[in-house]
Design a protein around this nucleic acid. Sequence first.
RNA 1: GGCGCCGUGGCCAAGUGGCUAAGGCAGAGGAUUGCAAAUCCUUUAUCGCCGGUUCGAAUCCGGCCGGCGCCUCCA
Length: 524
Amino acid sequence: MLPPIEVYNTLTRRKEPFVPVDDRRVGIYLCGPTVYDKAHIGHMVGPVIFDTIKRYLVYNGYDVTWVVNITDVDDKLIQRSAARGIPMPELAREMTEDYLANLRALGVDQIDHMPKATEHIPTIIAFIQQLIDRGYAYEVDGDVFFDVTKDEEYGKLTNRSWQSFQGEGGEAADRKRHPADFALWKRAKEGEPSWDSPWGPGRPGWHIECSAMSKALLGETFDIHGGGLDLVFPHHENEIAQSECCHGKPMAKYWLHNGLLKREAAGKVGGRAERESGASESLTYEDIAAATAAKESRSKGAGGLADLIARYGGETIRFFLLRTHYRSTVVFSEQGLEETRAALETFYRFFQRYERLTGQSFYDLTAPQRREEGDFDPAGDELLEEVHRIRKAFLDHMDDDFNTGGATSQLFELVRALNRYIDRHQLESPGADSQHLESLRRGVTVLRELSSLLGLFRSPPARATGGDDALVGKLVELLIEVRADARKRKDFETADRIRDRLGEVGVVLEDRPDGTDWRLEAEH
RNA sequence: GGCGCCGUGGCCAAGUGGCUAAGGCAGAGGAUUGCAAAUCCUUUAUCGCCGGUUCGAAUCCGGCCGGCGCCUCCA
């Protein structure tokens, strides 16, 4: 029996049971970036949620192949590289590396293929030729256009018809038969990067690479096609037109679209330029940082996504994105990241607590990799009964269109249950009951299992310490020692003074029965 | 104008017909602590407004108010 996963399908505008085209094999295609500028946090929404979706499908026993394309030839790239005076491939390479670094930082490592448009030109040309041969496309003076009037189903994804389009004129419009027709191949202008084709030198249109590369890597019909909501029209609508006219069968069974990131004031982060404003062609993180964080003007300075990652950590950003449902709009703010970081501290402190009382690192626990492996019988155990219930609630949320927002709430429930158990049975005291410790270990293993599904807590977070760790550590230990003597003498004035002054510089002390722990407060 | 989305406690945010409306952040009180920190417990919601359907609606339908996305290339 198939796991009861349901997904919201943009194509049918409703939630449907997830049943792959081909038994246990699943193909996912996500529209990736056009690499003409550095990535901003909005570009990470899709990769993070689809990374999580793949993890969840694998966990449920599916054999998943995930493709994310890189668009490395396009008008923006041509313009930007010209403006910077560097070759387009060099610009593309630079921005692709930036993109990949950001993916790594956010723990996105499930991608199987990252095809580049420029590496699939022959595939693309063959695809276009097929469309011409079948009468769905026509060539005019070196341009090739898709003829929407030949596609009876054109507009089905977004519930609109080509007859309703007005078209906006423009230079290429004169050569099109209908304003709604779109370019498959663009003839090269003087000095532009180009490839030879049956229609003369030129480059692929915006949509065709996805049709051609998804076919090459996933087949004519695959399971999930994803992207940002801003891509639904025209990009995905046109992909469907191209692929389904060419193959005579559905391109993808499920169309999943993630919501866009916005900042409070106005304007989305990502997607294309605003229509009316005519302002900058896209909002980069610099704009947002300037709007939301400039007033605090830390010495760090507000920069791009890399700066956000440096200041908050990739895990915080990932968790921030997963705390809402993927289809909803995420309002970006540094306050939101601050809150997320504060919330994550609960987990990090728990991991330290667990290690302190068992000597075992949370990160060394081996969790079940498959859903059925993780099933267990609580056998009446007080803690495990509760853990079992929480695990089920977590999985129910994930089954329901990958509701990571609901699922994360169960992670908090779980860590609280575990803390409560430690408190109630005094597991931090010397004579802790081994049976209780074993139950705890099993409970914590479930926390590891579930958090892994979200790509969280896979390795210890890089702590932003902002200084020389070793020296700071020695000095703090020294002060703790001095303070311990003071406390023995009941000289609480001195003891409190040390703690207060350390607190002022961001060092938090925690007195425990067996000694004093310290940690650096998260930056703020 | 066309297609579509959203409005849940101070803030963020799950929940789309029926147990006491998740969870986080912030705040308050308590247990614990020499005092703190951490942890645990307690605590804040007539679900934008009006009307309708229903035994029953945050959840479905209609209207209104407010916010937003998309409506090709040329950008």
